[in-house]
């Protein structure tokens, strides 16, 4: 074990400090040091999206980010998506549309989809399919995932309209 570095960051709205080796990925830090195991490892080289988290204003594969790079960043993981008010509409729509089977890719899809809808509140099916191409699902054939995301967009837009 080599020397550890002190890192100060924000995860799901909370200030967090941790120690990690430079070689530890953000995914390893989240899972093994902080025990936030919602982000999953599927490939460890940026090709499946199961470890997707938000870092600042964009999504990243946490398996190809170093833990030390989290210094001063704002990270949001699947554990931070639901609030004390309840599930996020995307989570609710994944349940209603049966958009998950084994569920291992689900956290990554939900984090990715949230980032999509924040940038593009009215995506076309094509937009959704393109955006989610970095998230592999082997169970569903994506059909119900795409439906759920499109429906979540609708629900979020209705929510926005109601609040206006």
């Amino acid at each position: 074990m080599s020397k550890k570095t002190h890192v100060q960051t924000e995860i799901n709205g909370e200030g967090i400090e941790f120690l990690c080796e430079p070689r530890q990925s953000l995914l390893e830090v989240l899972r093994d040091e902080l025990h936030l195991t919602g982000a999953k490892e599927g490939c460890n080289n940026g090709n499946c999206g199961a470890c997707t988290v938000l870092m600042g204003d964009r999504i990243v594969n946490s398996c190809i980010v170093l833990g030390v790079e989290a210094e001063g960043e704002k990270i949001e993981t699947i554990e931070g998506i639901a609030t004390s008010e309840g599930l996020h509409p995307i989570q609710q729509k994944f349940l209603e549309h049966a958009a998950l089977q084994c569920g291992i890719c689900t956290p990554g899809f939900i984090v990715s989809s949230k980032a999509l809808l924040e940038q593009n509140p009215t995506p076309s099916e094509e937009d959704v399919r393109f955006w989610l191409a970095g998230n592999l699902c082997r169970c569903t054939g994506y059909h119900k995932i795409v439906e759920a995301v499109m429906d979540a967009a609708k629900a979020l837009n209705t929510e926005v309209a109601d609040n206006a």
């Binding site: 899972r31 025990h35 936030l36 919602g38 989570q91 994944f94 998950l100 569920g103």
Partner: peptide
């Protein structure tokens, strides 16, 4: 009918414990 699956909430919130989540 199409009820919501019983393990659904755990799986959309990242709480469901898979094998690699053991510590």
């Amino acid at each position: 009918t199409r009820p919501i699956r019983h393990d659904g909430i755990d799986k959309v919130t990242g709480r469901a414990a898979y094998g690699a989540d053991i510590h």
